[in-house]
Simulated scan of single mutants.
Amino acid sequence: MSIQTILGAIVIGAIIGALGRLVLPGRQPIGWLLTIVVGIVAALIGTALAQVLGVATTNGIDWIELVMQVVLAVVGVGLVAGLRGRTRV
């Protein structure tokens, strides 16, 4: 794994996490760093899921894969925000 791949995953994860956070209504009690981590995980799982489901890779933007990643980011941000919200005193 090269440094470009790692930096690319961080950038894509940040974008996916931010999109997931924007789509989720309300305020989430999590920081941006945790949002980026959730976005990276959602991007990796979304890509793996798209490959398993046989979504075709195109030369441009893979819209179906992107939608999967954002939906997973919304679920991830919601779960993390819910868990963080309950543990605060």
Rank of each mutant, 00 (worst) to 15 (best):
G8L: 10
I15N: 04
A50D: 11
G26A: 07
M1L: 08
M1W: 02
G26L: 07
I3N: 11
M68F: 15
V41P: 01
L53H: 00
G8T: 11
G39L: 07
V38E: 03
T5K: 12
V38T: 13
R88M: 08
G85Y: 06
L83A: 15
I6M: 13
G13C: 07
I15A: 14
A14E: 10
A81W: 09
I12S: 11
D62L: 05
V75I: 15
L72A: 05
L49P: 04
G60P: 12
N59T: 14
Q4I: 12
P25H: 06
P29V: 03
G82V: 02
A42S: 15
T5W: 12
P25Q: 09
L7T: 14
E65D: 07
A14I: 11
T57A: 14
R27A: 11
V71F: 10
V75D: 07
Q4E: 15
V71T: 06
T87N: 10
I64F: 05
G31S: 09
L19P: 05
V41S: 01
N59C: 00
G31I: 00
I36W: 13
I10S: 03
V55Y: 03
V41T: 09
L34C: 02
R86H: 05
L19Q: 10
G78C: 05
R88W: 01
L44G: 13
G54E: 01
A43D: 15
V80D: 03
A42D: 08
L19R: 03
S2H: 11
